[in-house]
């Protein structure tokens, strides 16, 4: 809908432009500058053109292969945690109480993991899952299962996935709960009168009404998991080997570990573009779903 035009609005937005300029545009320009150069330390830079980009996008080179491996790891990780957290979140939301003092209590408990800083989550799990002194790690080994996340890639993956599920399922559940709460009672009554089974109520009433919040939950969890850094860095440091080296971890390794600023800059730009592209895809999907909705509720 058209809004009244008021030029003074620009003045109000100006500070935001300034902040964004200093916090985003200038650093990105610096990165762009690095990405076309090479350095061997001493703050000396050499022109390298699009060399890094060519290498990066060619899987046969060391850098390209490494990039592609990390990208696959990221996609796999996002797919796994979405496949677990979304259904689990829905399940949790469905079993949450609807009224009474239990609602407040549940909400507080659910919100707890969300309030813990990322690096603390990593540290908690690093200790918790240790095979020698960690409660979970020790217990699993006591059951006769050989479990050591520092040595076994599979164990490392499982630990990170479990950690992420523990940390973030609440978010999905809370969003779904909000969606469920917005369904009028009449729908449930009608379904009972129609003799619908529990499953039919879920598929015909609850799921369709949760669609929009689910879309938001999926978007948030996807973006967040795709950019995961702190927790696996604290927990496994990317190991064992490169088993849990995600793009962000690899990026830091190249930039700060090897001080290959040019490679790292090129890599972060491509990474950034991938994130932006995926963002755009989700945004389009979501706004399309939104406009369909708005036509139904014609404002006239």
């Amino acid at each position: 809908m058209d809004k009244p035009v008021n030029n003074r609005a620009w003045l109000l937005v100006a500070p935001v432009f300034l902040i964004v300029a200093f916090s985003a545009i200038l650093p990105i320009m610096t990165v762009v500058n690095y990405s076309v150069q090479d350095t061997f330390g001493n703050n000396q830079f050499f022109w390298n053109g699009l060399g890094w980009f060519q290498e990066l996008l060619d899987p046969s080179t060391e850098l390209g292969g490494r990039f592609l491996d990390a990208l696959w790891r990221n996609l796999l990780f996002s797919a796994i945690i979405l496949a677990i957290e979304v259904p689990l979140g829905i399940l949790v939301a469905l079993s949450m109480p609807r009224e009474g003092w239990k609602v407040a209590a549940t909400l507080v408990i659910m919100a707890l993991p969300l309030l813990i800083p990322w690096n603390v989550v990593g540290t908690i799990w690093q200790v918790f899952a240790r095979a020698d002194i960690g409660l979970a790690g020790w217990a699993i080994n006591a059951l006769g299962i050989d479990y050591n996340y520092t040595g076994d890639p599979l164990a490392a993956w499982i630990t990170i996935v479990v950690m992420d599920v523990w940390h973030w399922t609440s978010l999905v559940a809370l969003l779904c709960y909000a969606g469920l709460k917005s369904i009028p009672d009449a729908y449930y009554q009608a379904a009972r009168i129609d003799g619908a089974s529990r499953w039919a109520i879920f598929t015909t009433i609850q799921l369709p009404k949760m669609k929009r919040v689910l879309l938001i939950a999926v978007l948030l969890r996807f973006m967040d998991s795709f950019m995961i850094y702190t927790e696996p860095f604290v927990l496994t440091g990317g190991g064992p080997g490169n088993a849990t080296t995600f793009l962000s971890i690899d990026l830091v390794k190249i930039a700060l570990g090897q001080f290959d600023l040019g490679k790292a800059a090129a890599m972060s730009l491509v990474y950034n573009l991938i994130v932006l592209a995926l963002c755009w895809v989700f945004y389009t999907v979501m706004t399309n779903a939104g406009t369909e909705r708005r036509h139904e509720e014609n404002p006239a």
């Binding site: 729908y187 009168i193 129609d194 039919a200």
Partner: peptide
């Protein structure tokens, strides 16, 4: 018994035909 509510209750994802068939399908 059957009931008609103040605000229309229809199953959004279904066609009119599926809506009407729903109580019978459940039975």
């Amino acid at each position: 018994i059957a009931q008609v509510f103040q605000f229309p209750v229809v199953y959004d994802t279904m066609t009119v035909r599926e809506n009407l068939a729903f109580p019978l399908k459940n039975r």
